[in-house]
Design a binder for these strands. Structure first.
Length: 125
DNA sequence: GCTATGACAAGGA
DNA sequence: CTCCTTGCCATAG
């Protein structure tokens, strides 16, 4: 396992119940700003040890294709936690997005400058 | 070391 | 809003 993989799993486990994040956001926090695709790939492999259903794409849509853990299952998991999901698998991501505190970001072995950039990016919109 | 493969993202049609 | 294209980058083979 690489450091990147460890980070992704660690971060995913930090997502609070009832909140969601985008793949790109996880990648950003893991230190690879454009590693969104890898995040999806990793969650597919380690889905049994992470709350993978709290990670969706930035368009607010569920995009899993996995037969073992399909979109309908993810929809039910989220609704059970209080997250509204439409029949078209749409989610108001900005309303449920998890905005990690500076303390949490600091524990991810990231330098302060990087942490600052992340927070600045998510404080917008 | 090189190519193929995505549970993505963003911008254009 | 929905499709399509291009850019991305860690893994697998």
């Amino acid at each position: 396992m690489s450091a990147f993989t460890d980070k992704v799993i660690e971060i995913t486990n930090l997502i609070p119940k009832g909140k969601v994040v985008s793949y790109g956001q996880v990648a950003l926090m893991a230190g690879v700003p454009r590693g969104a695709r890898q995040v999806g790939w990793i969650l597919h492999q380690f889905g049994d040890e992470t709350p993978w259903w709290r990670v969706i794409n930035n368009a607010g849509r569920i995009s899993t294709k996995c037969l073992e853990h399909d979109a309908n299952m993810q929809k039910e998991f989220l609704e059970k936690e209080g997250v509204q999901v439409t029949k078209r698998l749409n989610i108001d991501i900005e309303n449920y997005r998890w905005r990690p505190s500076h303390e949490i970001l600091g524990k991810l072995a990231l330098d302060d400058q990087y942490v600052f950039e992340i927070q600045e990016k998510f404080s917008l919109s």
